[in-house]
């Protein structure tokens, strides 16, 4: 049990140090590191004859190499190309680039499937399609097929910032309250106006940039 706990903590710390990318956004080398760390952590959990150090040191080393490779890739275009590869333009000016399709070991059906996942059911609507280095497909539609933007109609829009969560599961977020220069008294008054006496009754409350307070009460417990 202690071995499992130690390895669990180590893997969590390593993942936190390595960054916050999701599985689908990983670069190939990051995916390799992730798979290797999983295997290294799993084996000594079940085999107590293997010293824990045999896993701890490779996990730390993989984390070190991953961080240093990421740093080098950030600083150097050459390193970035070497470890991450280059994006591949699969559709250029509305035409499928067959050579790139072959290089990527993709067939037309795979491409159509990816386009459908991206919301483009007709290849004729696509101006550019690019396979990014993390395996995601980016699609740039033809100008006549892209969604209408307010600026197309020359409509002025207001600034939309992030709403600030003020109460989460009955707990007041004092940091956010201070950030928007309000206090607990104001919050309690606002809740009273909505017939709520105690913040503990609130499941979630947030304030948007327009000054609108969203409040949702907790469900009453069944007795």
């Amino acid at each position: 049990m202690f071995r499992t706990l130690i390895l669990f903590a180590l893997v969590i710390i390593s993942m936190r140090i390595m960054g916050k990318r999701q599985i689908g956004e990983l670069q190939p080398y990051e995916l390799v590191v992730l798979i290797m760390i999983s295997a290294l952590a799993a084996i000594p959990m079940e085999d107590i004859a293997i010293p824990l150090f045999n896993s701890i040191i490779p996990i730390i080393l993989l984390m070190v190499f991953q961080v240093l490779t990421s740093y080098a890739a950030q600083r150097s275009e050459k390193v970035r190309t070497l470890v991450c590869g280059r994006p591949s333009i699969i559709i250029q000016n509305g035409k499928i680039v067959e050579s790139e399709l072959r290089n990527m070991h993709l067939n037309i059906n795979d491409l159509l499937e990816q386009l459908r996942i991206c919301g483009y059911h007709n290849i004729n609507d696509v101006e550019f399609a690019i396979f990014e280095t993390n395996g995601e497909l980016s699609v740039i539609p033809k100008s006549q097929c892209r969604p209408l933007q307010p600026r197309d109609l020359q409509i002025e829009t207001k600034y939309e910032g992030l709403p600030h969560p003020l109460i989460v599961d009955g707990n007041v977020n004092h940091e956010n309250l201070a950030k928007i220069k309000l206090d607990l008294l104001w919050l309690q008054n606002e809740l009273k106006k909505r017939g709520i006496e105690d913040v503990k009754e609130v499941l979630f409350a947030s304030l948007d940039t327009e000054g609108q307070l969203y409040v949702q009460r907790k469900e009453q417990k069944m007795r």
Partner: peptide, 14 residues
């Protein structure tokens, strides 16, 4: 900071 920290880890392990 993370880069320095990991480099320090590496040197300690070495």
């Amino acid at each position: 900071r993370t880069v320095w920290l990991t480099a320090a880890f590496f040197l300690v392990i070495l």
